Amino acid sequence: MKAPGAMHGSGNAAPSAPARRRKPRTDWSAYLYVFPATVLLLVFSIWPLFFGFWISLWKWGIGPQKFVGFANYAAIFTRDLVQDNGAGTLAPGPIGQALLNTAYYVAGSVAVSIVLAFVLAYLLFRIKTFRNTLQSLFFLPYATTIVASALVFIWIFDPQRGIANAVLKGLGLPAQTWLLDPTPAAARFISLVTGTPAAEVANPYMGPSVAMCVVILFNIWNTLGFSIMIYLSGLASLPAELLDACALDGAGERQTIRHIVLPLMKPTTLFLLMYSTVHSFKSFTPIFSLTQGGFSGGNGTQEAGGPLGTTNVLTTEIFNNFYQRQDQVGYASAVSFLLLALLITLTLVQFRLLGRRSDFD
């Protein structure tokens, strides 16, 4: 009589060793689905990145003229970042001034936009009446074409017929030239308060010009609705029982915001900070549209970034070198990679300072 384990049957047969070691069959059809997206990514993202770096190693006009290696990058740091102003002191060069203007633009746009967006989003979160209507009104500027919105701003701040000057005249204040004024806004304010001519107190490091402040105001107005919607999404995900417990324990509105809402909204703030920073660094259309062409370049051409280059940021400097200046395509590409390096560095710093892993757990 055979033991039960020795019985032979198709249903009870143990799998052989080769069958146990057999690898799962690869389903190649999955690669067919990702192949089109991979090709598009390579053609429109990866290849232009490498080709742009290749261009930056050349003196390039309509086509390649001379291989110069890293000379374009060296020119940025040795020639155009800082220059001798002829009086024995150093002053910002074209790239240095563009970096300074970019810092003004990014700092003013991002800081004010995020703080204002959180305040408005929290107010909308707390109210019930007309919430949807108000959300739509705040989001409308973000959904509107930038060029069309810029034309409205140009009309508002028109020196002759603008609403802004009409308001100033109604308050008994002198009219301003706004988008045509290269004077630092701080110097203009001191001049209005003290009566001292703005030219006597102005210096290149007093902050953004009046024209740049108008551009910053436009960027805040244009992007505020998006930030509000992101904050509202984050606020809607807060545990309702936690907010109710704070109210039952007698915590005031300020204490609830400081100790509960703000810490829980830190991931949302980090996302908005990163998005707004990158968006502001890459901003070109608002500046070009509001300044209506720009200022006269060294070769007599009309370049973006006016008046007198006070709104000339890195993106407009790239545009000027690429389109307005002869044989500077390679140099423009080098400046583009400087901008890319700045964005990567700032993103890593933001992650390091704000994006600790425990905050997302």
Rank of each mutant, 00 (worst) to 15 (best):
I216V: 07
I216T: 05
L217M: 09
L217D: 06
F218V: 04
N219M: 02
N219Y: 03
I220E: 06
N222K: 13
N222R: 14
T223S: 06
T223N: 09
G225R: 02
I228L: 03
M229G: 03
I230Y: 08
Y231Q: 05
Y231G: 04
Y231C: 05
L232R: 09
L235R: 11
L235G: 06
A236W: 03
S237P: 04
L238K: 11
A240G: 10
A240D: 08
A240E: 08
E241R: 12
E241F: 01
L242S: 13
L243S: 14
C246A: 10
A247L: 03
A247F: 01
D249G: 07
D249K: 00
D249M: 02
D249N: 07
G250W: 00
G250R: 00
G250F: 00
A251I: 04
A251V: 04
G252I: 02
R254K: 06
Q255R: 13
T256I: 05
T256H: 09
T256M: 05
T256S: 10
T256W: 03
I257H: 07
I257Q: 06
H259S: 12
H259R: 12
V261F: 08
L264C: 05
M265E: 01
K266N: 10
P267K: 05
P267Y: 03
T268P: 15
T268E: 09
T268V: 12
T269C: 07
T269A: 05
F271V: 05
F271I: 04
L273D: 07
Y275K: 14
Y275Q: 13
T277P: 00
V278W: 02
H279Y: 03
F281D: 12
F281C: 15
S283N: 09
F284W: 01
F284K: 00
T285P: 02
I287N: 12
I287K: 00
S289R: 08
S289V: 04
S289H: 07
L290P: 02
T291L: 00
Q292L: 11
G294K: 00
F295Y: 12
S296M: 12
S296E: 15
S296P: 08
S296G: 09
G297A: 01
G298T: 12
N299E: 13
N299Q: 09
G300T: 13
T301Y: 14
T301E: 15
Q302Y: 13
Q302G: 09
Q302E: 15
E303F: 01
E303H: 02
E303Y: 07
A304M: 04
G306A: 06
P307I: 01
G309I: 05
V313N: 15
T315L: 07
T316Q: 10
E317D: 14
N320I: 14
N321G: 12
F322C: 11
F322N: 11
F322W: 13
Y323W: 11
R325N: 06
D327K: 10
V329A: 13
A332Q: 08
A332V: 11
S333P: 07
